[in-house]
């Protein structure tokens, strides 16, 4: 359960404040949630706010669940350290030591399947390799919610299949919050939908309805 109470969020631009959310109050049940919205509507910001690394200007977001860091294409790794060292680093941040840490390192090594690169500095990686490590890492921790920001689109075909399968297995243990433009992916992965449009959040009990509404908005814009 995620509770939003009178949440307002804006960010400063050269032409004054641009609002993403204006006085939004909403209860989101604990299900797999898909977030829809046009580019620049603030989907990623919403995800970051739910993950607790960005804060609303006013209002409150509260939840009794734990959230992963937003899995995205960028950030979270120290480029001069190898993937192994980065994984250990994140383990230590989340209080995992000893055998638990070794297990996580091995599972990420196996999952991302980048061979000897795993022990080389991450600045030498391609973006695909980096997202493999990131994906494997966040699947190795137990959160109530996984925050996913368009990560599913990366990687080659083989990895995409593997990632999808791993994620589907993971969904048994946890819920996901997914930001994606791929309608098919949303339909497969999510139960309920949230549409972010013109500073308001619209909640749909069925992801299909959310997608329909989203398409309607898009048609109107076009």
């Amino acid at each position: 359960m995620i509770k939003l109470e009178n949440v307002t969020k804006s960010y400063p631009t050269l032409n004054g404040k641009k609002f993403i959310l204006e006085d939004v109050t909403l209860d989101i049940p604990r299900k797999n949630i898909g977030i829809l919205g046009r580019n620049g509507a603030g989907k990623s910001t919403l995800l970051r706010m739910l993950g607790g690394i960005e804060y609303p200007d006013s209002g409150k977001i509260s939840s009794d669940c734990s959230f992963s860091w937003p899995m995205g294409l960028s950030g979270g790794f120290i480029p001069t350290m190898s993937a192994k060292e980065n994984v250990k680093f994140v383990c230590r941040i989340y209080d995992k030591y000893g055998d638990e840490m070794r297990e996580i390192v091995e599972s990420v090594r196996e999952f991302c399947d980048i061979g000897e690169y795993f022990d080389m500095p991450m600045k030498t990686y391609s973006s695909g390799m980096r997202s493999r490590v990131g994906f494997g890492l966040s699947l190795s921790f137990d959160f109530d919610y996984l925050l996913i920001d368009e990560t599913l689109a990366t990687g080659d075909t083989v990895f995409k299949e593997k990632a999808k399968e791993a994620l589907e297995n993971k969904i048994g243990e946890c819920n996901i919050l997914l930001v994606n433009h791929g309608v098919q992916v949303l339909k497969n992965m999510c139960d309920v939908g949230i549409l972010l449009h013109e500073q308001k959040l619209y909640y749909f009990d069925d992801i299909g309805d959310a997608i329909k509404e989203y398409n309607k908005i898009n048609r109107k814009a076009a």
Binding site: W69, S74, G75, G76, I78, I93, Y94
Partner: peptide
């Protein structure tokens, strides 16, 4: 270290 702030605990 901005990129590390994506981990809520940091």
């Amino acid at each position: 270290n901005k990129s590390l702030f994506i981990y809520r605990r940091v």
